[in-house]
C-alpha cells in the first residue's frame, strides 16, 4: 500500500492506505472519530473537515487528495480548556440534540469565519446549506455562529 504524509490538527503523520480509500475512513481509523459518516455520497455534511481553510466533505476525498495539505478536524479546533469560539458558542447555545451533525456544522462554520469574520445570517445559512440536521437544531446553529463572530445571535 502506498504511504502518505498527512498534516492533521498540526501533527504530522505518515499513513499507509489504498489510494481510493476515502479520507473519512482514514481519519476515523486514526481515532479522530468526531468526523462522522452520514451518507458517503457528499450529500449531508456530517463528515465535513477543513482542508487548507476550505470546508470539504471527507467522504468525497482520498488521502492522496490531502497530501501535504493542512487538515483540521473538530478535535483540532479546540479543547475543553481552550475551545474555539464556535465550540464555546455551540456549548453556550446548547446547540446539539443528538449532535451527530454538530462536528460538520462547526467545521463548515469555521471555514466560513476564516474567510468572513462577520457573516450575515443569510451568509451563515448559505454556508451551511449542505449540512443536514435531523433533530432540528438549525436555529440554534445560526445563533451560535452569529455569537461566535461577535454578533448578537
Amino acid at each position: 500500500m502506498p504511504r502518505y504524509r498527512l498534516r492533521v490538527n498540526e501533527g504530522v503523520l505518515s499513513v499507509e492506505a489504498d489510494a481510493d480509500k476515502p479520507l473519512l475512513y482514514v481519519l476515523r481509523g486514526l481515532g479522530l472519530t468526531a468526523t462522522k459518516f452520514g451518507c458517503g455520497l457528499g450529500q449531508c455534511g456530517a463528515c465535513t473537515i477543513v482542508v487548507d481553510g476550505t470546508a470539504v466533505q471527507s467522504c468525497q476525498m482520498t488521502v492522496a487528495d490531502v497530501q501535504d495539505k493542512a487538515v483540521t478536524t473538530l478535535e483540532g479546533l479546540g479543547t475543553a480548556a481552550k475551545p474555539h469560539p464556535l465550540q464555546a458558542a455551540f456549548i453556550a447555545h446548547q446547540v446539539p440534540q443528538c449532535g451527530y451533525c454538530t462536528s460538520g456544522m462547526i467545521m463548515s462554520a469555521a471555514a466560513l469565519l476564516e474567510k468572513n469574520g462577520k457573516p450575515s445570517e443569510g451568509e451563515i445559512r448559505s454556508a451551511l446549506e449542505l449540512n443536514l440536521c435531523r433533530c432540528g437544531s438549525h436555529t440554534r446553529v445560526v445563533s451560535a455562529v452569529m455569537a461566535a463572530s461577535g454578533q448578537r445571535g
Partner: peptide, 19 residues
Amino acid sequence: LPRPDVAAKCLGTATYIHD
C-alpha cells in the same frame, strides 16, 4: 441547566455507538 453531553459533542470527545 446545561445538558451534560453537549460540551463533548461540540469538542469532538463524545463517544457514539459508531465510535
